[in-house]
Simulated assay, not measured.
Amino acid sequence: MQDMFTQSTAVLVQPSPQTFERFERRGGLNQALMYVVVAALVSAVIAGFFGIFHSGVNPLTQFFSRLIGIPLQFFAFTGLVYFIGRSLFRGTGTYPEVAYSFALFYVPLSILGTLIGIIPIIGGLAGFVIAVAMIYFGYLASQSSLNLRDPVSAVVTLVLSGLAYLVLGLILAGIF
């Protein structure tokens, strides 16, 4: 866990495909899952705690929905990035490289977003800034982990993955 935190710091401080390249093979799916579960647990605890103070919000529902939902959403999105990048643009990376690379920026940014999100006035603005940062780091991680050297390929991979993720979410919302 300490190694991943150090790697996350390097990725956030020196953002480039080359920085991601240094770390993409130092971990795999298990490490990515453990790291994302940390983000989910932090978010779940904060949501559950602050849910106590809001009427109409069940703290246990908040806790479990984040604890389960965040890892599922992360792996669904990174799976789409991998599938689209490999299928349409002949990316040569592996799914564990994609998941691990994305986890390196996703976890610290999502924890930061959760912590700042509880502050009433600046929470919304900070959420927007963090969303933009996630897109930027996703672009760099896609270039590195899938070996997509053409910037357009990385952008289109992310846009199509985002659209597919949205459609998948709408379909699942209709089912449940």
Score class of each variant (00 low, 15 high):
M1P: 13
F176H: 15
P59G: 02
L33V: 06
Y106V: 11
P71I: 09
L163C: 15
F49R: 14
Y100G: 13
V81Y: 04
T19L: 05
A10I: 00
G28L: 02
T94L: 12
L12K: 01
Q31E: 15
V98Y: 01
P96H: 01
F128V: 13
S8R: 05
I118M: 10
L72H: 12
G162A: 06
R22L: 09
V107L: 13
P71A: 07
L109H: 00
G56H: 02
F5T: 07
V42T: 08
F137W: 10
A10G: 11
V42D: 11
M1W: 12
R149I: 15
Q14S: 13
G85L: 03
G51Q: 03
F23A: 08
G162M: 03
Q18A: 09
I119A: 08
S87E: 13
Y100E: 06
L104E: 00
L67G: 05
Q143L: 10
S55K: 12
L60N: 08
F77W: 07
A76F: 09
G117W: 00
P17W: 11
Q62P: 04
I116E: 02
Q2D: 05
V155D: 13
T157C: 14
I130A: 06
S145E: 00
Y82H: 10
S145P: 01
F75H: 11
A40V: 06
S65T: 08
M1F: 14
S55N: 12
N30M: 14
G91N: 01
V13I: 10
L109V: 02
G124P: 11
F102A: 11
V107T: 09
M1R: 12
G174V: 09
V57L: 08
F102N: 12
R90A: 11
G56M: 02
A76L: 13
V107E: 03
F137V: 00
Q2R: 15
G48M: 01
A141Y: 00
F64M: 06
G138R: 00
I121G: 14
T78H: 03
G79L: 06
Q62G: 10
F128H: 04
M4C: 15
V38M: 15
S8D: 03
R22P: 08
A103P: 14
S8V: 02
G69E: 02
R90T: 09
L67I: 02
Y35Q: 07
L60C: 05
F83H: 08
L80D: 12
A164I: 04
G162N: 15
I84L: 15
